[in-house]
Write a protein that binds this DNA or RNA. Structure first.
Lengths: 286, 286
DNA sequence: ATGATCTATCGCTTTTATCGATGGTATCCA
DNA sequence: TGGATACCATCGATAAAAGCGATAGATCAT
């Protein structure tokens, strides 16, 4: 059962080619290194160094086991760093709940800096809309959420505005509405609407006529591409993934800017990494 | 600096949800486990278990660090297994030198069993022909080689026959020889031959006329596909990678069977894994 | 030859790992 | 409501080992 310290001495000695040098670098006495490596060789049943020369030189077997020892040390370093982060109050994982309305560009720009600042953080992205998303936040399943501004927030949910997202009304070019060069709002009611729904019970979709609905904007967009009706969609989503198969309706007042809120739970506030991300998302908006 | 044993106790306790159970399984006393985990928590600065209930239950931080601890133990297990293998005389790596004449099917069939039998073995495949390959074996760079039978082997090279490989004479369909329904050997001399060459000096290519040559059958095949001459190629290579761009010449006595030898050095004999593979390659031939 | 710089080894001290015993507490069953 | 049975934390005591300094032998450069 080789000890971690013995492995560290082994790696250091192999790296510098001398036991004394390893002892100096690790703040131990030379005899300690000599004895520790001798013990390690007994434990492993393998001669690691050829000591016939003035300086010890790794045997082929030692060279092979050196790679294994370095892996052990690397794993232990990760453990220690993760523990140090947790001890400093860092959350072990940060779960984000994203609405399709949120364009991911700004988040992606921050991810590399987030990874550098919290190297042991596990980042998770969930997709949900409105009520589903708030439920994720409220239950603690996710710590931060990005949604279009809701008409009502539960008392435990805190929110702050972030960069807005542009929304447009889209139909397939084959759709009857696609021909008109100008459309009045009343005309929309004559055609099928494609709306967001949520799996969350309680909030009945305010249906007028028989709308079609889907739980994500991506599915709504595919329905619109199928020509089944008109849908309000994030412009960035259509531009990025819609190809040229959708057409924006020229209604007065459209496309409109939709306020995107970042939301979190007051009872289960996000940890340092979440707060850091939160500040970055709300502070400077382009 | 957490010790390996403490990590093992931690993982075992977390896996079974009880310190006593971990103590029983690892043959330690209950107090040892209790103290070791308490020390570990101090070392890491993180509370791993919530002890308010009857049985200790992992904290979120503990659950996160558990994954790290398991990685450390896994790395240490690999180290110990590798050391045990080396102590048993296993070679740390096995390098094979393969000729293009050798069809890799039989070798591939044995690789999974080899990996199961020697899990810590690093396997390496080199490509070389005739003299180059023998040089790899003789220098110790590779331990086993598979070549067409050579007219002469150096004294330190041992060899044994293995499954033969079928060789054919091929040309591009655009080549003049491709039209004939029967060819006499003398006709070949009238056209350019594509032959193997080696980077090894000393053995001058027995050139008659100005042959073209390349150091691998794969390059020879591509030359033949270009219509630059005729080449003797392994049938399996043409069938597998040649597409339909090559045509076999109908010479009497062709295609012929080429004896494939497995060769190794007498001065640097292969280790147990190499010997095991050697026996499997020579014993039962289909 | 000489000084410098290695490594191996030998006592000695200090640390720590481990054990058994003890006490407190929760769970289950009669 | 007890009693039995688990479980965990804590406390000395002891044995193991980790570490250090000193020393001796070996090698290299000057």
């Amino acid at each position: 059962m080789p000890s971690i310290e013995a492995l560290r001495l082994f790696v250091e000695a192999a790296a510098h080619g001398a036991f004394s040098e390893a002892a100096r670098r690790l703040g131990k006495s030379q005899s300690t290194v000599s004895a520790a490596i001798a013990n390690l060789e007994v434990d492993l049943g393998v001669v690691l160094f050829d000591r016939s020369a003035r300086l010890p030189v790794l045997t082929p077997a030692g060279r092979h086991l050196l790679a294994n020892a370095e892996q052990v040390l690397a794993a232990q370093d990760r453990l220690l760093r993760a523990a140090a982060g947790l001890a400093a109050g860092h959350e072990p994982r940060l779960s984000l709940a994203l609405s399709d309305t949120y364009q991911p560009e700004r988040l992606e720009a921050l991810q590399s800096e987030l990874a550098a600042r919290y190297p042991e953080l596990a980042l998770e992205c969930l997709i949900a809309e409105s009520d589903d998303l708030l439920a994720l936040i409220d239950s603690g399943r996710a710590q931060l959420g990005f949604v279009e501004r809701q008409p009502y927030y539960p008392p435990d949910i805190e929110y702050a505005a972030t960069a807005p997202s542009q929304m447009g009304l889209y139909v397939s070019p084959r759709h009857p509405l696609a021909q008109n060069s100008r459309i009045e709002p009343a005309q929309l009611d004559a055609h099928r609407a494609l709306r967001l729904t949520t799996v969350q019970a309680g909030t009945a979709p305010r249906a007028r006529g028989h709308n079609w609905s889907a739980p994500s904007y991506l599915m709504l967009m595919e329905m619109a591409q199928g020509g089944f009706g008109w849908a309000e969609l994030p412009c960035w989503l259509v531009e990025r993934y819609g190809g040229n198969t959708l057409q924006m309706l020229p209604l007065p007042g459209w496309p409109r800017l939709l306020t995107i809120d970042v939301v979190w739970s007051r009872r289960r506030p996000p940890g340092p990494a979440g707060v850091w991300l939160l500040e970055r998302m709300t502070d400077s908006r382009p």
